[in-house]
Design a protein around this nucleic acid. Structure first.
Lengths: 238, 238
DNA sequence: TCAAAAGTGTTCGGATTACACCCATGC
DNA sequence: GCATGGGTGTAATCCGAACACTTTTGA
């Protein structure tokens, strides 16, 4: 029997959020880490690290996520285990997760970093349509994560993972439109999400322009996505 | 930085087929291997083995599949990477695949084994509703594989992976019914699969009882399931 | 001729789509 | 007032479920 002690296990995470651009659009964005060592020194790569003996993969993903962004994800799910022989000069199996962050968490954290002056030097956020060249097979991995997100948004409510605790239907619709890359009918969108029962109306309104829009919050009785028998146990650390 | 040389990587596969029972029903069945060593000696477990340094995970899955059953799968896809710290006495990350076998391949192979007398002694097929106690977390893994199959059968044509090259619509419908555990309207089922364009009618018929049924074969221009950017490259070895 | 499965036609109701229209606010 | 987005109404259409009905074989 062949042991596999010469194979190392890494955990990486595709961390996604919705960024508000200067001209007001919402675009998907993710943080990358500038590598300081070979292989692929000075290239950008997904946040991650080696799996330690005392840590489960999902815990490792949550930990590197926190180390990179200082934040806890609103959604975290395993994406795929990549293990092709030639994907790295040494033999590495990468268990890759994908995570969603609320956009208000991200902007608050970035402001805090700027204010305190000790923002992580080698971490940078990139818009999804302006990614640099990526180390290893990480470009393919990001592409696959986006494909999963776009699929999943059609049959679950993961899009709410991008939004703050309270949001208007227009904001939720904008999230869907950014993810799917197409515009949706406001009237029909409203009816669909209302009848789905995933939203709870509040008695508060977003004011500031034109007619005030009602704020909704998500019904936390329902998971963001059905994970089947794996359930929430495999999802996060608690 | 912590290396992870003390973590070993295994590959296991949930191999599924549709078995014809003595009383004519079709039930899902899978092969299990009787363990000869600790841990979990003398218990049944999923087929698998250690990932070797020169082999990709999907190749390892295909290899152990061939070693266990002597067959090539009609469908093979990664299921999940299981890596909880306490899932084995030693630290093992298992990359688990799930595979479909054509029922005619399986029955032919089993007959050949019986005839030649050297059937693998420690491999046995179990009906899905009569599984023994399983080693490790393999019971949970099987449960998750079945969940994936039942989901996937709704939006892809993986069910055809159970059937021979040519089959009647009743046989295809029976496969769906066995997987989903409910009966389907023959008339509506016919229209749905016909309009989906995944089937090509042949000019041959299955005779023997009542009115002959037209034989169909699957349209190999279309993949059994959309795998997204991973595509068929990550699916099998060629 | 009859039972049973193959295959066709039709209806119904719910969901999706497109789009007209009213409402409430800032300017 | 009026422009603008919030929110409602409604007709057209598509799609799946239910089920009656015809066709073709073996016995």
């Amino acid at each position: 029997m062949t042991r596999s002690g010469d194979i190392r296990v890494a955990v990486s995470t595709v961390i996604l959020t919705l960024r508000r651009t200067d001209d007001g659009r919402a675009v998907l964005a993710l943080p990358l880490v500038l590598r300081t060592r070979e292989p692929f020194a000075d290239q950008w790569a997904l946040p991650g690290g080696w799996l330690t003996a005392t840590e489960s993969p999902v815990d490792a993903a949550a930990r590197t996520l926190a180390e990179t962004t200082g934040l806890a994800p609103s959604y975290l799910e395993q994406l795929y285990a990549f293990g092709a022989v030639d994907r790295s000069p040494t033999r590495v199996v990468s268990i890759v997760y994908w995570a969603l962050l609320r956009q208000d968490d991200v902007t608050a954290q970035i402001s805090a970093h700027r204010a305190s002056g000790h923002a992580p030097e080698n971490v940078r956020w990139f818009d999804i349509d302006q990614l640099p060249q990526l180390a290893f097979d990480h470009a393919k991995i990001v592409e696959y994560a986006l494909w999963r997100l776009r699929n999943k948004v059609g049959y679950s409510r993961v899009a709410q993972g991008f939004l703050p605790a309270e949001f208007t239907l227009a904001e939720l619709r904008e999230a869907y439109e950014s993810i799917l890359g197409k515009s949706l009918d406001p009237a029909n969108f409203r009816r669909q999400v209302e009848s789905a029962g995933n939203l709870l109306p509040t008695d508060r309104f977003r004011t500031g322009s034109h007619r005030p829009a009602r704020l909704y919050r998500d019904n936390t009785d329902v998971e963001l996505a059905d994970r089947g028998p794996l359930g929430p146990e495999e999802t996060s650390t608690r």
